[in-house]
Structures are given as structure tokens and as C-alpha cells.
Amino acid sequence: MRTAPPAPVQGATPVTHRALAPDLARGLMLLLIALAHAHMYLGGHPAGFRGYTLDGDALDRLVAGVQILLVDGRALPMFAALFGYGLVQLANRQLATGRSWPQVRKVLRRRSLWLLAFGFCHALLLFFGDILGAYGLIGLVFVGLIRREDRTVLRAAVAGLVAHVVVLAGFGLLTISGPKGDTPAAMGDPMEALMMRLIGWSGMTPTYFAASVVPAFLFGIWAARRRLLEDPLAHRDLLSRIAVLGTAVAIVGGVPLTLIDTQLWTPSDLTAVSAYAVHSLTGIAGGLAYAAIIGLVAARMRPGHPGPIVRALSACGQWSLTCYLLQSVIFVAVFTPYLGGLSTRVGDAAASGIAVLTWLATVVLAALLAPSGRRGPAEVLLRRLTYGRR
């Protein structure tokens, strides 16, 4: 008996049919990512747990304090939750075409494998703190949980939280006892920087970043099953609770490390490492809260009538992979000693100002090109590698 051929692969969702909240969240999230990454290109200064300089002036310390409290360790979980959310959306679109789950799982794993390759290239050429590789690794390992019951997903998330604390405590101990030196982004020799980027990425992807991504990724799967961001109006009460509780937990949990890294408090090493782990753990709640807040904002907008700013931010979200990589291109051009050379000449405040300008430039670029139906070049390449030319 002949088997019917599989249904054709569904193409990318047309821009006009995309849900507003997930794209808006991704667009705003890229601002937090830029702020969290820019100071990591600085060198020549002693740095704290989160990489901010310890010898900056009052403005640098103020900026560092605000970002440690509200940005660092909060942007990555938000990004991870949106990644899990988007993977469920992608699987649902594939299943809706009539494809079987084994076929869909194969597509998702192929996409994750290419994301891992993107991350390798990103680290090789631009930035040791790449997170694409971690997403690809998580997608390869945990894609099966998309079809498992909620209880299993939430249990895995709790186990991920435990692993997260253990890994972060280990990195905190390394920060205190390990050698101090410039980050790969601030090294003057391009080949030495390249080798150090690969070494750092190879170690951080399966440990630090993967442990940081897993819990939020799984919570994103849970949220996508309930369409929390696709239909935020129907889930306004739940999103409100997540927003309020998550923000409160993140702020309370972030205060101790903020005081330590801005040198307003000098506790014992054990207390400092504990504060570092608590900061990162509560940051997961903060990342989920930020996504919920954006969902609530989207729920208040008239359907089909976003303003020009919202349209621009959503366009940036549609181009999130391209804009993320463009940030690294600009930072390398501006900061590295063998190009722009600002890594040793500016402080945290100036680096954050450059981050905001960089993010604005990517928003403008996406806003100009996305409304015509164009996909970001990185998004087009990832789809071509995943699905072929069909």
C-alpha cells in the first residue's frame, strides 16, 4: 500500500498575520540584550561578578547598579522564554499542515543544529558571550518536551532551576578565585582574541548559558500552550500576577549583588557568591515578568492599529536574529583595540549609551525594511538551511 506524501512545509507566517506581543517583546528585549553585552567589551579595569568596572566614576557606578538590578540576568531569561514560546508556535504550524510529530521533531532538531552552528560562527568571529549556541543545544536536547504533559515540563523546569543555582555558584567561586584579565573582546591581538572566544564559548555554552536558558525555555513552552502572548487580553489576570510577582522577586533578589558590584557593600566571599546565585535565580522571574508586562501592553492596544513606535519595535522583533548579530558587529567595530579602540577609553555609562544607539539603529533598519515583507537576512538563511529551497 502506498503511503501518501507528507504535507508541504508551511512557510513563514506572513507579517500581517503575526501576533503582536511576541514580536514586540523580542524587539524590546534586544535593548536589554544590548545593554547587558556592551560593557563586556570593556577591558583594562578590575571587574565585579557581572563584569562591570570597579574603578568607574559615580555615573558609571549608577548605570552599573541600575543594569545589575533590572537588566543583567533578566534579559537572557526573557529571551529564553520567548525562544521556547516560538518553538511551540513553529511546531504547531508544522503540525497544522498534516505532518506527523516525528517529521516535525526532525525539522526542529535540524533548526536547532543550525542555531548551534550560528552560535559557533558568532563566537568565532564576534562575541564570546554568544547565546545562540545554548539555544541550539537546548533545542536539540529538550525538543521532545514540547509534546509532554505540563507536569513533566514543570518538573523539568524545577530540576533546571536547581542546576542553575549549582552552576552559578560554581561560576561565582571562579570569579572570586580565578585569574583576572581582559575579556576576549578587549584583547589587542585578533588571533589571541579569536582563540579565547572559542575557548570561552565552548565552556560556557553547555554549562553557564545552557543552565541559564533551560528553566525559562521550559516556562516559555508552558506559556505557549496557553497562548498567553498571542491572546493576552484573555489572560490579563494571569499576566498581571506574573508581572507583579516576578518584578518584585527580581528586584528583591537583585539588591544584594547590586550593592556588592557597586562597592556599597563588601561581604564575605561566601555571601558574595550566594548573592550572585540568588541574583541570577530571581532574574528568571524578572525575565518572565518583563514578557508578561509587554503582553499586557499589547492587550491594551486596538487590534490591527499599532502606532508607529510599536510597529518599529515589532519589526525589530521580526528581525530579532539579524538584529542580535548586528549588535555584535557594531560592538566589535566600536570597542575592540584593533578597530574602534574604545574598550579601554570609556566606562560603563558610555558603553551603555553606545548600546542604546546601536539598538535604535537596528530598530530603524528593521522598521524601514520589514513592512515591505522582507525577512531579516539571518532569518532567511536559517529558514533556507532548515527547510531547503521549498
Rank of each mutant, 00 (worst) to 15 (best):
A7R: 08
Q10H: 14
V15E: 01
L20H: 04
P22I: 14
A25M: 11
L30D: 14
I33C: 08
H39I: 09
H39A: 11
Y41D: 06
L42N: 07
G44N: 02
G44W: 06
T53M: 06
L59Q: 08
D60W: 06
Q67H: 10
I68S: 11
G73V: 12
L82M: 13
G84I: 09
G84T: 09
G86N: 12
P102D: 10
R105S: 14
K106H: 13
K106P: 06
S112P: 14
S112F: 10
A123F: 05
L124H: 00
L125E: 06
L126I: 09
L132M: 11
G136R: 09
G139C: 12
G139K: 14
G139S: 13
L140S: 03
L145T: 09
A156Y: 00
L168P: 00
L173V: 11
G178S: 06
G203F: 04
M204Y: 01
P206M: 10
Y208W: 04
F209T: 08
A210P: 05
A210Y: 01
S212Q: 02
P215I: 07
A216C: 07
L233K: 06
L238F: 02
S240A: 07
A243P: 01
V252I: 15
L257D: 00
D261V: 09
T266D: 00
G283A: 08
G287A: 10
G295S: 03
M301T: 11
H305L: 02
P306V: 14
R311L: 05
S320K: 11
S320D: 14
T322V: 03
L325Q: 04
T336A: 14
Y338R: 13
L342T: 05
R345C: 13
D348F: 01
A349D: 10
A350L: 12
A355K: 11
A355P: 05
L360P: 00
V364M: 11
A366N: 08
P371T: 05
G388D: 15
